[in-house]
Amino acid sequence: MSLKTPALLVGVCVLAGAAGFGIYHLQKGAAAPAAAIGSAAATNATAPEAAPSNIKLTDLAGNSHSLEEFRGKLLVVNFWATWCTPCLHEIPALKKIQDDYGARGLQIVGPAVDDADEVRKAGPGLAFNYPIYIGSAEEMLDLMTKFGNSEGGLPFSVVIGPDGTILQRQLGEFSAVELAGLAEEHLPKQP
């Protein structure tokens, strides 16, 4: 074998590796909607991931809403439940951030993975300053799966940019500091 052959083989190997990496990424991207906790879709700077479309939500009065209503806002979709201690612990931080950044374009919404009657009972005590939505357990688990959480762990939040792309998924509590950081990063600066 000449000296050129090993160099050629190494070159082919590197190209094969790069192709494998690229194909792997494309496959992961295609599997985005059903991705499990901890292995959600790949995201990168050149291919923003669009939030699932046609998401319908029902408010406590029984009225139907679409997430599209919030297009143009920095949207935090926070899945929660009355039986979930970390969810209840997180709510004051969410309320504070809604108060602090609502006027600048932040909107939190809270689909409850819970019995509707339990949510109605707990609602007044929790004094939400953002809309709460209800649905059957199956509907809410299906919705969370569409957002990349197939195991149903709570709390689970998805941050959606004003252009409808997913900016972040968070399993477990957001702190007020983390939420404020997101708001400062993605909302227009104050004059």
């Binding site: 590796g17 790069a18 494998g20 990496f21 792997y24 990424h25 992961k28 991705a35 906790i37 901890g38 292995s39 959600a40 879709a41 790949a42 995201t43 990168n44 991931e49 990349g148 959480n149 195991e151 762990g153 972040q168 998924r169 968070q170 399993l171 477990g172």
Partner: peptide
């Protein structure tokens, strides 16, 4: 490359692996 892709993809959900 595959391992790197796995680590990359996990970054898209912040929080613990459960």
């Amino acid at each position: 490359s595959a391992t790197a892709a796995d680590v990359w993809s996990k970054k898209s959900v912040a929080g613990p692996d459960l």
